[in-house]
Amino acid sequence: MSTQTTTGGSVPRKVPPSSVRGAAMRGVVARPGLEAVEVKGWVRAHKWLLLRRASQLGILALFLLGPWLGWWIVKGNLSSSLTLGILPLTDPFLIAQQLAAGQWPYKEALLGGGIVLAFYALFGGRLFCSWVCPVNIVTDAAAWLRRRLGLKGGKAPAAATRYWLLGFVLVIATATGSLAWEWVNPVSMFHRGLIFGFGLAWGIVGGIFFYDFLIAPRGWCGHLCPQGAFYALLGRASVVKVSADKRSACNDCMDCFAVCPEPQVIRPALKAVGQDHPLILDADCTACGRCVDVCGKDVFRITTRFNRSES
């Protein structure tokens, strides 16, 4: 690996690398999207990022309007909420844990869980991760800082760990007869902390930041989080997908790989590895749209799973 890095480094930059893997060995792109900013302008090169931050912060603001200003549009937190006094929404991940622990919720929670389940199953499971979950902002910040400081390497657990962890979360719920994961779940804890008060939960959020920043690149969201794994499984057949439909224009600049929180999902679509169509169908893709933003050649776009066309 180290020999490849040195030989790769001696290749002049203007020569397009022969393979994506070879380019990846060349090193981390410190500031991906510079070309896109030049070509498309800053706003268009950050369009999906801005929309995503607006979505994340807007949803958080809806929850905070009540306790801060007394405008009770949404009560509760992401675990379960009541909007305008009629619309119940419940996290199906919590209902799954509750059922595993041997308790049956009221019909409001089942209805709310069903609505959320249907939404993410239809549109995209990990839309939750990139468009709603507040931890995403923390781990994105860690990844950004990592790139800017040029930190390479690190030790992340296998990406499949989260699926095992999801299984074990349900097992310990049954074994302990309690929602044991919720004692430590940073996702629900962070959101609840922002709305109801933190206590020492800052420690857990800070822990995730430093874990992602210093130890494991994209460690939490991309390798460990069982809640993200739950939503990934939920959205296996969902509709909203990213497509590399102009992959013929790709100049192998690697910017998309540098920003993607789940870089392994890009290759099959972009380089036609193991598939012909340019759709990213991997359930780990969070449909965050950063690859769309940072690509100077407009290779990617957000579309549906039915659109397999290539231009």
Partner: peptide, 17 residues
């Protein structure tokens, strides 16, 4: 208490009301 810890999903709606 033992059943409560299996059932409560920590949403805070009781606190709000």
């Amino acid at each position: 208490e033992s059943e409560f810890l299996a059932a409560c999903i920590r949403c805070g709606l009781c606190v709000r009301d």
